[in-house]
Design a protein around this nucleic acid. Structure first.
Length: 570
RNA sequence: GGCGCGGUAGCUCAGUUGGUUAGAGCGAUCGACUCAUAAUCGAUAGGUCGGGAGUUCAAGUCUCCCCCACGCCA
């Protein structure tokens, strides 16, 4: 038994995520966690909401609520939806937790002690009306380059020229529209990542088994331009973790908070503390401190490609810089984007399917199966209603669901609601066992390597093998001349249901539960021997004929949904 | 403009360190079966492996140039 720490990139608090976000981190992380638990390993699977920063403040203001209340509410909303998708977090924490506040401040203090923090005085745009400094993207004005009137402070959307907020003509605040902007001097802390560049580069170079997407992005940031840049880790905001030097005040930093990207990854650690404080566990340090038991933990992170730089460089720089026995990540699984019907999912324009909507129209397993079997691993992938409907109907309803249906119903009609007795196994059964043994090994190999699509394809082939067996042995024909032999074939088929329940659980946990319940089994141990697993249900063991596992999606539904999710969200 | 990931059968994708007739699933066509959610199983599918040049006895698989899509950065 090994110990596995798994984290999914933590979703930002303002709003409900779409399916592209889901398949890029939380869902494959859950797949991996469920698989490892199924195989008997010790797993700590953590996720949280990322709650600090300007967007949360603005979203709260828009909702007319104090930001802390807004975050608390949205955390519950996201937790409920995550639960709806069967995301099996051991704890779903909050980056605004007391644990994270203390830990983030402690990290800053430690990094300061290690000589990796410097103070930088810089000029930023301040909005008198809003009473706050404005991040670049919250300033708009006329582009000095092309005359476009709604150019943002960081870039002109019309001519794509990169801008500095002070370049804009007639700048205004996008928060209030205020034009009484002025440039003020402010002081911030910078994490001197550049000092760790060599150490980070050596570390990345040692990870030859990481996805090329992960390492290529990391190396690019390490070497691009002047190389890895020092990074500001504080902001002039109200909503965030107050800047402190450990538990001491930080002179000159009064009223400032840590930048959200500094405290968010630290929440991975703090979340383990929250897990303990919530009474779910007893020793978070054995997962995170290499001097306290975490040396033998394998830590795997899941994230979309946009998060890779922070997880390959920024957060490791924090860990390495602290030089205090914190656990570094062992494997980073990153994903490309899932596109929606020829374009991108768009949160702002409500284009595509969002997590809450998805659960409103279909059970979680449908989404889990399709998204995972089409995970954007090697390149961007595409969601279309046509392929979604086709694939789900074929794989889940026809291949798996119908298999369960045909064998249980046939057995009931000929033998009754219990596993039948009699008959002897022959070449067909031996061939089935040989094939499943081979495929199980391949399935495990792909799951161990977190090759999500390949694992899904192998699982599907395992389902197909059951239909092939039934087709080849044809118990409905055998029954006419040799009922005993037909009983043996049916017995095999019923045992396959239990096997499929166990192997499929990481992908489609709800259906797996239904299948296991149908054969009235509570033995969900991962099979080590297929032959033995196919004899787990003895003759005489009662079972139930379940409702159809997966109803089919109709063409009318497909067309209706395609139209409903094409445009502006209501 | 620089960089990154891709561009393989109608669709979605596999293709180890270059080496026999380039693979799978879906769709399509034909056939088998009738237990089952008009489900299943089998067979067939002849794609200049984005384009061009090169290295090699041999390239989808290496080198160079170009084109296209997406993304990151300037």
């Amino acid at each position: 038994m090994a110990r596995h720490l798994i984290t999914s990139a933590i979703p930002y608090i303002n709003g409900i995520k779409h399916l592209g976000n889901l398949v890029g981190s939380q869902l494959p992380a859950d797949l991996f966690a469920r698989y490892l638990r199924g195989r008997g390993h010790e797993v700590l699977f953590l996720c949280a909401t990322d709650e600090h920063g300007t967007p949360a403040e603005l979203a709260a203001a828009k909702a007319g609520k104090p930001v802390a209340d807004y975050c608390a509410e949205m955390h519950d909303v996201q937790a409920k939806i995550a639960d709806g998708f069967g995301l099996s977090f051991d704890h779903f924490g909050r980056s605004s937790s007391a644990q994270n506040r203390k830990l983030t401040q402690a990290f800053a203090g430690r990094l300061h002690d290690q000589g990796l923090i410097r103070e930088v005085t810089e000029e930023q745009v301040y909005s008198v009306t809003d009473g706050r400094f404005l991040p670049d993207r919250y300033i708009e004005g006329t582009c000095p380059n092309c005359g476009f009137e709604d150019a943002r402070g960081d870039q002109c959307d019309n001519c794509t020229k990169q801008l500095d907020p002070t370049d804009l003509i007639n700048p205004r605040s996008t928060i209030s529209g205020a034009t009484d902007l002025e440039v003020r001097t402010t002081k911030h802390l910078y994490l001197e990542q550049s000092k760790l560049k060599g150490q980070l580069a050596d570390w990345i170079d040692s990870k030859g088994d990481w996805p090329i997407l992960t390492t290529s992005i990391a190396k690019k940031w390490l070497t691009d331009g002047d190389g890895l840049q020092d990074r500001g880790i504080t902001r002039d905001l109200d909503w965030g973790i107050p800047v402190k030097d450990g538990d001491k005040d930080w002179p000159g930093m009064e009223g400032k908070v840590f930048y959200v990207w500094f405290d968010a990854p630290i929440e991975y650690i703090a979340c383990a503390q929250e897990w303990v404080d919530a009474g779910k566990g007893s020793d978070w340090e054995s997962w995170w401190r290499t001097d306290k038991g975490a040396a033998d933990v394998r830590y795997t992170q899941f994230m979309g490609k946009d998060n890779v730089p922070f997880h390959t460089l920024s957060f490791p720089a924090t860990i390495m810089g602290a030089d205090d026995n914190w656990k570094l990540v062992d494997y980073i699984k990153s994903f490309n984007y899932l596109n929606y019907d020829g374009g991108q999912f768009s949160t702002s324009r409500g284009r595509g399917v969002f997590m809450d909507q998805a659960l409103e129209i279909l059970p979680a397993d449908y989404w889990r199966w399709w998204l995972l079997s089409h995970a954007p691993e090697s390149s961007d992938a595409e969601f279309t209603w046509d392929t979604f409907t086709q694939d789900v109907n074929k794989d889940l309803s026809d291949v798996l669901g119908n298999f369960v249906s045909r064998i249980t119903k046939f057995c009931r009609s000929k033998f009754g609601d219990a596993v039948p007795t009699g008959g002897t196994e022959g070449p067909a059964e031996a061939a089935l066992i040989e094939e499943l043994t081979r495929r199980l090994k391949a399935y495990e190999g792909h799951m161990d390597a977190i090759e999500v699509r390949k694992a899904a394809a192998e699982l599907r082939a395992i389902w197909v093998a059951g239909n092939e067996y039934l087709q080849a042995t044809a118990p409905w024909t055998t029954f006419k001349t040799d009922p005993e032999q037909a009983a043996c074939q049916v017995r095999m088929g019923l045992n396959l249901i239990r096997l499929y329940a166990i192997l499929s659980a990481p992908f489609i946990p709800d259906a797996a539960k239904t299948m296991l319940a149908a054969v009235r089994s509570d033995d969900a141990d991962w099979p080590t021997d297929i032959a033995a697993a196919l004899h787990a249900l003895p003759a005489g063991h009662a079972f139930d004929v379940p409702e159809n596992l997966f109803r089919k999606i109709t063409e009318a539904e497909r067309d209706d949904w395609a139209e409903r999710f094409a445009g502006v969200r209501t």
